Simulated assay, not measured.
Amino acid sequence: MEEKLPKIYSKKAVLGFSIFMSTLFGGILLYQNLIEINKKKEAYIVLGISIAITILTAIVVNIPENPQSSLAYLCGLGGGSFLAYYFMPKYFPNEEQYPKKAIWKPLIIAVIIVAILFALIIYGTSVENS
């Protein structure tokens, strides 16, 4: 009898969330994939690397006098590529055989987080100007 493979987030989902949200979001998706296949140690390593890349991105983006958001996308592309093209093939060499999880749940969570951060920025700016 053939073993049923668990559903995982695709390489494209990990890369996309890393680019458009942050490497931390992509790392969390990959973390969940690794938990699904009972690789907890590897999951925590990936999560730690994702956090480190995200912190490094925040530092790099804020170094210039005029912070450039395009640097955040480039860093997300770099971090996401590392997750998608190094870790995914390493732990999921036959990734295409796994059924894929829908990205709706993480997408909704990401949109809610962005909306909250955006509201806090607007509120903070209005309090500063009053």
Rank of each mutant, 00 (worst) to 15 (best):
I51P: 03
I112C: 11
I108F: 10
G27W: 04
L15H: 01
I112P: 03
M1I: 15
I8H: 00
G27R: 02
E3P: 06
I49R: 05
M21D: 07
L15M: 12
I37F: 12
W104Q: 07
I35T: 09
L15Y: 01
E3Y: 10
S50R: 03
I8E: 05
I19G: 01
A110Q: 02
K90L: 08
Y91R: 01
G76M: 01
K4C: 10
V46E: 08
K90P: 04
E65L: 15
G48N: 10
S126G: 02
I122L: 13
L15W: 00
K41E: 12
A58R: 11
I103Q: 02
V14R: 05
I59S: 03
I59V: 11
A72T: 03
S69K: 13
S130L: 15
I116P: 10
P93N: 04
S130E: 13
E95T: 08
G124I: 09
N33L: 04
W104I: 14
E95Q: 06
I103D: 04
G76L: 00
S50G: 11
A119L: 14
L71E: 00
I116S: 12
K105I: 10
T57S: 03
V61F: 04
N129E: 10
S10C: 04
P106C: 00
I109F: 08
S126C: 12
L15A: 10
I109T: 14
F17A: 06
A102M: 14
L29W: 06
N129L: 11
L74W: 04
I28H: 05
S18Q: 02
I112D: 11
G27P: 01
A84T: 06
V127T: 14
K41A: 13
G78F: 08
A52R: 05
N129P: 09
S70H: 07
A102I: 07
I103G: 03
K40P: 04
K12Q: 15
I116H: 09
Y123G: 12
L24W: 06
L5C: 00
G80R: 00
Y9H: 05
P89Y: 07
L117G: 10
V14I: 14
C75V: 02
I113S: 04
